[in-house]
């Protein structure tokens, strides 16, 4: 019998605790496949954030470190500067990266640190139970905006790619999604590009991935995918913002 689908060597043999329909599992698998395809698993250190994907340190089959909330880019800077031969990726959610860790991501990008950031945006705080995130859409309901996000009271969402794209530092900024098979493939290409840029010692790459959170969105997995297509991706435009390595050519 021919095996057509198997667990990539980049993942440990551990049962993931993500909810049904959650996007983290897909994004984990993409990264895990790339660790093998790019032959970098044995020299990679991954950084797990605080949030739902805190357990990423159990799932990726490579050296892992789990620091304080939002500080991934600072820890990545320390790791990579101390040992430039490592491949370092920082896996961060929207609360981690765009709220508590805003200073760290902006300055790591400005310094053009040579590591890869995978920024998972699901517009909600998952692990703590559905509170307002810095990327929660206007009027969207969360457990701390039960009447919908009133931007006059709760402020406006932050578009991270657009924000970082105003800096001279970053080499690569891309926003993709995992709500359809096509976009899953595009996401894999984008993350691959991010790793390749790091391997070529070119610098900072951030791939923002829009991801489903059916549990906290109070939707079915199918409704969640449709919501990204019809609503979320209209607010967070899916596009390549920057690839300085292409401009060089």
């Amino acid at each position: 019998m021919r095996k057509v689908y198997h667990r990539p060597e980049g993942l440990t043999d551990t049962l993931m605790r993500y909810c049904p329909g959650c996007g983290h599992g897909i994004i984990h698998r993409i990264i895990a496949e790339l660790l093998v395809e790019l032959n970098i698993r044995e020299r990679t250190v991954g950084i797990a954030p605080v949030g739902c994907s805190v357990f990423a340190d159990e799932y990726f089959n490579c050296d892992m470190i789990q620091p304080a909330h939002g500080r991934g880019p600072a820890v990545a800077t320390g790791l990579k500067r101390a040992n430039p031969d490592l491949i370092v990726f920082s896996y961060q959610g929207d609360g981690d990266l765009a709220a508590i860790g805003t200073a760290e991501i902006v300055h790591a990008a400005a310094r053009n640190e040579n590591f890869t950031v995978i920024f998972v945006n699901n517009a909600i705080y998952g692990m703590t139970g559905g509170q307002l995130a810095p990327t929660t859409l206007p009027n969207m309901v969360s457990t701390t905006t039960p009447r919908g996000r009133n931007t006059k009271l709760a402020g406006n969402p932050i578009r991270v790619c657009e924000l970082l794209n105003s800096l001279d530092g970053p080499v690569y900024i891309n926003r993709t999604s995992v709500h359809t098979p096509q976009w899953v493939l595009k996401t894999k290409k984008a993350i691959k590009r991010g790793f390749e840029i790091q391997m070529a010692k070119k610098g900072f790459a951030l791939i923002e991935v829009l991801s489903m959170c059916p549990t906290n969105w109070r939707m079915s997995p199918i409704e969640s995918s449709r919501w990204i297509e019809e609503v979320m991706s209209k607010y967070y435009e899916l596009k390549l913002f920057r690839d300085l390595t292409k401009e060089e050519k």
């Binding site: 470190i65 800077t77 200073a103 300055h107």
Partner: peptide
């Protein structure tokens, strides 16, 4: 060695977290 002026003391101590994990005296 590496010298870095950071955006905050929070970033500095977390860079040490990473550098120490990489094995250097930080």
């Amino acid at each position: 060695g590496v010298f870095l002026q950071t955006e905050s003391e929070i970033a500095a101590i977390n860079m040490l977290f990473g550098a120490s994990a990489a094995g250097v005296r930080a």
